[in-house]
Simulated assay, not measured.
Amino acid sequence: MPPSGLEPYDAVLLVSFGGPEGPDEVMPFLRQVTGGRGIPEERLQEVAGHYLAFGGRSPINDQCRELLAALRAELDARGLDTPLYWGNRNTAPWLGDTMAQLAADGHRRVLAVTTSAYPSYSSCRQYRENLWDAWDAVRAAGTELQVDRVRHYAQHPGFVDANTDAVRDALAKLPDEVPHLLFVTHSLPTAMAATAGPPPRSDNGSYVDWHQSVAEEIVWQLRRSTGVEHPFDLVYCSRSGPPSQPWLEPDINDRLAELAAQGVRSVVVSPIGFVSDHMEVVFDLDTEARETADELGLRMERAATAGVHPAFVSGLVELVLERAAVERSEPAAPSVIDGGSPGLLRCPADCCPNLREPARPALCQAPAAG
C-alpha cells in the first residue's frame, strides 16, 4: 500500500455498536445484543417497544455516517488520505464483513476507533472481543492482519470540551436560574463496574471514576468561565437486569424526584456516557426522564452529545495520529484533562474481565508478563 501519512497504518476502522434501521430488524438486533444473558422475552418486547415508538429505527447508524463524514473531512484537511472504514458489532455493516473487506482491499495494518469512550467490560473489552472474532476469521482465511486501537478517550480534552460546550448551550436556555446538573451514563451491574479498568482500581472501578472526573472537569470549566458553581450528580439510565442484581444508582428518574422534593426548580441533563444520541438518550432521557420532570414540575434542558462537534472530531484524529506516532517510536505525549488518565493502548488480561466467559479472547491485549 502507498504511504498514507499515518504510517505504519494503512487504514482506519470506526467500530460502533450498531442499531436497527427498520421494524423487522428490532427483535433480531435485541437478541444479538443480549444473546446468552438470559434476558426474559417480556423484557425484550418492552425494549423493542422503545424502538418501535420511533419507527423501529435507531438513530445510531445515521450518526455514525455523520461521524464518518466528519472524520473524512478532518483527515483530508490535515492532508491524510488514509482509507476510512466502518463496522458494527450488532448490525450491518457487520464488523466481520468489514474486516474481510479490509483484507481483500490489501490493508495489513489497521487502527480501530471505537464509539465508546470509557473503560468497562461493555464499553471496552466487549468491543475487543468482537474485534478478535472478526480478526480471527480473516486470519483463518489466510490473511495476516494487524489491528490496534486508539486509547480510551473520555478524558481527552476534545471529548470534554464538546460536552462542556453542550452544557453551556443548555444553560443558556435557562438564563435566570442556576440549574442542577445531572451527568448521565448507562448503568452497569455493580460487579461489572467494580472490575472496570486495570488494577489497581478504586472500589468504584474506573468506569465510575472516569465519569465522575469528566463531570467534575465540566463543572470546573463552567465555574472558571462564569463564576457560577453548579450543584451536580452522576446518575444512570437504562438498567436492564433483574431486581435481585445490584446495578449502579441512582437512576435519573429517582434523582429527579429527590431534587424536586428538595425544592430544585430546573435541571440540565448531560449524557456524558454516550458519544451520540443513542436510543438510550432519545428514549430514556428525551422521553422518560422528560416525562418525569414534567410531572414533577421541573424545567429540564438536555445537553447535546459530543456527536460531530469539531473539538470531538479533531480529538479523535489527534488520537489516531498519537497512536501512529507510538508505533513509529516517536515521542507522543497523550493529551488529557488536568489530573486525568490517558487510558490504555493495550489492556492487560485482567482489565475489565468478562465475568461470564473469563477465557474468551480479546484483541488489543497486552502480552502476558514474562
Rank of each mutant, 00 (worst) to 15 (best):
A324V: 02
A289R: 04
T195Y: 00
W247S: 08
A170G: 08
L111F: 01
G340L: 10
L52E: 11
G339C: 11
A104L: 04
E295M: 12
D24M: 09
C64E: 13
G263F: 15
P271N: 05
G158Y: 02
R239C: 09
H309T: 05
W220H: 14
E229D: 13
A196F: 08
L52M: 15
R328F: 12
S187H: 07
A311P: 12
V282G: 04
L182I: 13
F274E: 01
D105E: 14
L296N: 00
G343I: 05
E66H: 14
W94G: 01
H156I: 05
A112W: 00
L102Y: 06
I218W: 11
V219Y: 05
T91K: 04
V313W: 04
R356T: 11
V269I: 14
L222W: 12
P93M: 06
H152R: 10
R37L: 14
C124A: 14
P231Y: 14
E291Q: 14
P119R: 07
R255C: 00
W86Q: 10
L6C: 06
M192H: 13
V317Q: 07
V228M: 04
P243I: 12
R360I: 00
L84H: 12
S314F: 10
W210D: 05
D176L: 07
R65T: 13
R108N: 07
G35T: 11
W247F: 13
R43H: 11
D338Q: 11
R168H: 14
P83T: 08
L95C: 02
T164P: 07
A257K: 12
P40L: 07
V267P: 09
V110I: 13
A103R: 00
Q365H: 04
P59A: 09
V160D: 01
R356I: 12
Q146C: 13
A70T: 06
F29Q: 05
R323W: 10
P83I: 10
V110L: 01
E291T: 07
